[in-house]
């Protein structure tokens, strides 16, 4: 063995190590995701092209795009799609703006801050089933106080249950969802806020910048990556989130709160038509992919523009 030979070899080894290192860090995540999520998802997607009805187990088999053709003439599908849009955008808007507000409020020293932090984050820890039931109680005029308060405030003509009114019912699960989701944005944004170097603020303070200027010029840019990722993920989650709706209104009255995921749930586990349910799930997947692609494109354009 002479050094001339080993030298490039070990150099190669180092190169290989360099090349492999990121994959090494990634491998546990990738393996578990591939086994537990990707494989079942592929199986789930394959249902969309098959006839899988538990009610008619003998009609199985591949049927191509039949489900997708049915889908385009299904009026419930389109109303569910519109409802999903309302549900997602309204929930997201309030969760985000109220969550950011809370993070800013908490990013300041005051007596009892620890206690307040622990308490305002509690809604996130309540199982959605329980929070759905609790909010349904609160909206029920027999056993809940909200309709009475809303009537006193002039928001309702008489104390009735907004969950029974097709024009208002969607706001019930939305309020519950906002309540549940504020802590998410508050925690992530607060953690990000606390990694803003304080000398930046000090410098701004010396320059005599107004607090709005500080917010726009320093805080926001620092938060931007976190905002981008949390808003994107949260949109996907909310769009896919059916628990509160199923518990509080089960899509009613008259389908007025039926979103795509709740319709998918009903189709799969009430009609036992897994094929059609999967076709709708695939449509939802495609729409969400489009949304993320657009968002990522915008993000990279923005960061290129900087």
């Amino acid at each position: 063995m002479n050094t001339l030979v080993t030298q490039p070899k070990s150099q190669k080894k180092i190169d290989l190590q360099r090349f492999l290192e990121p994959y090494l860090y990634l491998s546990p995540a990738l393996i578990i995701i591939a086994l537990v999520i990707i494989t079942p998802t592929l199986v789930g997607i394959s249902y969309a092209f098959q006839s899988i009805e538990l009610l008619n187990p003998f009609n199985g088999g591949w049927i191509g795009l039949t489900h997708f053709k049915t889908l385009f003439s299904d009026r419930y599908f389109f109303s569910a799609l519109a409802n999903t849009l309302d549900w997602t955008l309204i929930s997201l808007f309030f969760q985000f703006s109220l969550g950011l507000g809370l993070a800013l409020l908490l990013n300041r020293k005051f007596a009892g801050r620890k206690l307040v932090q622990a308490l305002v984050f509690l809604p996130w820890a309540v199982p959605t089933f329980l929070s759905g039931l609790t909010w349904a109680w609160l909206f029920n005029p027999i056993i809940g106080i909200l309709p009475h308060w809303m009537t006193s405030l002039g928001m309702l003509p008489e104390p009735y249950n907004i969950l029974s009114d097709p024009h208002l019912a969607m706001y019930g699960p939305i309020v519950a969802n906002v309540w549940f989701g504020i802590p998410f944005f508050a925690i992530t944004l607060l953690a990000a806020l606390q990694s803003v170097p304080s000398d930046l603020y000090e410098a701004a303070g010396i320059d005599g910048a107004s607090s709005w200027q500080v917010f726009v010029k320093i805080t926001l840019p620092f938060l931007a990556p976190m905002i981008a990722i949390t808003v994107m993920l949260r949109t996907i989650w909310i769009a896919n989130f059916a628990d509160l709706i199923i518990v509080m209104t089960s899509g009613g009255p008259a389908n007025s709160t039926q979103t795509l995921p709740s319709y998918i749930f009903t189709t799969a586990y009430r009609r036992l038509d897994f094929g059609y349910a999967s076709a709708m799930a695939v449509m939802l997947l495609i729409l969400l992919l489009l949304y993320t692609a657009i968002l990522l494109k915008m993000r990279s354009k923005l960061s290129n523009g900087d």
Binding site: N140, P141, I142, I143, Y160, N161, L163, S164, A169, T249, G252, P253, A254
Partner: peptide
């Protein structure tokens, strides 16, 4: 009751208990 359009078991029974 106006709300009864979306009532399930729990609501009708509680509606009856509570004299609604």
């Amino acid at each position: 009751p106006r709300d009864s359009v979306n009532w399930g078991f729990n609501e009708i029974v509680s509606g009856f208990y509570s004299g609604k």
